[in-house]
Design a protein around this nucleic acid. Structure first.
Length: 294
DNA sequence: AGCCAGGAATCAC
DNA sequence: GTGATTCATGGC
C-alpha cells in the first residue's frame, strides 16, 4: 500500500481491506490495548506501536519509515491482496460470504513463532481476557523493558533464553496452572534443537505439525495456530470451540467430531483454509454463534 | 455463584 | 482407536 511520512507518523490513505479493530480483536494476537475508538497500542517485535484509524486513513504513530518498511509492513501483511482472497472465499458459500463481509478488515498478522507457541499453549481452556493477562505477566517477569507510555511500563515477550530461566514453580506462581510443565518442555525442546522453529515455515505441513506436537501440551489446535499465525502456513484450519460451533451451525446441523470438521474444511477451503477459519472464528465469537443461551 | 474458556493428557474400555 | 474425565484459574 502507498503511504506518507508525516514527522514520526506513517499515514496510509485509502487503506484497503484493513480495519485495525478487526485485525486485533479477531483473536489472533494478545498483546494490544485499546486506548480509544479505533486506536490501539500494540507490543510486537520488541517495540511499542500505536495505530489509529479514521474513515479515510490509517496512522502508525511514533515510528519511523525504516521500521514501517522493515517490520510493520510485514507484520500487518500489507502486501497481500485480501480483496481477492475474500472474493474467492465469498463465492464458495453463504456462511463464508457473510463472515468475510461482516469482518472485512481482517489481515493475518505475521507474528513471531516462539511467541505464538507459548501464547497458544497458555490459551488452552481459557478466556481471551485471561490469556492476555497471563501473557502480559509473563512478559513483565521475563521480558525486556521496552519503554514507558503514559505512565505504563511495557516489556517485550520473553525470548527462549529469557523464558528458560523460569522453573515450573515460578510459572505456577504466575498462575499458568497445569500449563507450567508445558512451557518448560517447550523451551527445553527448542533450546536443545529437538524442535526446530525456523523449519516450520518451509517443511511439509504435516511434518511441521508433528514437529510442534513433540512438545507436551501442544495438540492439533495449538499447532495449527502456531503454523497459521506465526509460520504463515495458510493451509491449516485450527478448530476450537467457536469454530466447532460455527461449522456445526452452518454446515452440519448436529454435534460433529473436531477431526471431521477439520478434514472437511481442509478439503473445502484448500490453501485458503487459514483465512476462512479466521473470518469464521471472529464472526462466530462476535455474534455468539451456536452458543447455548441460558 | 456457578459455568465455561481459541485443549490436551490421561484413563477406561 | 474412540470416548469420558481431569487439569488450574478467574472473567463474566
Amino acid at each position: 500500500m502507498e503511504y506518507l511520512v508525516d514527522q514520526r507518523n506513517i499515514v496510509i490513505n485509502r487503506a484497503s481491506d484493513f480495519d485495525i479493530e478487526h485485525i486485533l480483536e479477531c483473536g489472533q494476537c494478545f498483546r494490544f490495548y485499546k486506548i480509544g475508538e479505533k486506536r490501539y497500542r500494540i507490543i510486537a517485535h520488541g517495540r511499542i506501536l500505536e495505530v489509529s484509524q479514521t474513515l479515510n486513513e490509517v496512522v502508525f504513530h511514533y515510528t519511523s519509515e525504516e521500521d514501517f518498511c522493515d517490520i510493520w509492513c510485514t507484520y500487518f501483511d500489507l502486501n497481500r491482496d485480501y480483496a481477492t482472497i475474500k472474493q474467492s472465499l465469498g463465492k464458495m458459500n453463504n456462511p463464508l460470504h457473510l463472515a468475510v463481509t461482516e469482518k472485512s478488515g481482517i489481515r493475518l498478522l505475521q507474528q513471531d513463532t516462539w511467541e505464538t507457541l507459548i501464547s497458544f499453549i497458555i490459551s488452552q481452556n481459557k478466556h481471551i481476557t485471561h490469556i492476555k493477562k497471563l501473557i502480559e505477566d509473563l512478559s513483565k517477569a521475563y521480558g525486556t523493558y521496552i519503554g514507558t507510555v503514559e505512565g505504563e511500563k511495557y516489556y517485550s515477550f520473553p525470548t527462549v533464553e529469557q523464558l528458560s530461566h523460569a522453573e515450573d514453580e515460578d510459572l505456577r506462581a504466575l498462575k499458568v496452572g497445569f500449563r507450567a510443565p508445558y512451557i518448560v518442555d517447550a523451551y527445553k525442546k527448542v533450546i536443545d534443537g529437538e524442535v526446530d522453529m525456523d523449519a516450520l515455515i518451509y517443511i511439509p505441513i504435516e511434518d511441521a505439525k508433528k514437529e510442534l506436537m513433540k512438545i507436551k501440551g501442544v495438540g492439533p489446535k495449538v499447532a495449527d495456530c502456531v503454523l497459521l499465525f506465526g509460520a504463515r502456513r495458510y493451509e491449516v484450519f485450527p478448530v476450537d470451540v467457536w469454530v466447532k460451533r460455527v461449522m456445526e451451525y452452518f454446515y452440519f446441523n448436529e454435534d460433529t467430531k473436531i477431526t471431521h470438521i477439520h478434514d472437511y474444511a481442509i478439503e473445502e477451503y484448500g490453501n485458503l483454509a487459514g483465512f476462512a477459519q479466521q473470518y469464521l472464528f471472529y464472526y462466530a465469537r462476535d455474534f455468539q454463534i451456536g452458543k447455548k443461551k441460558k
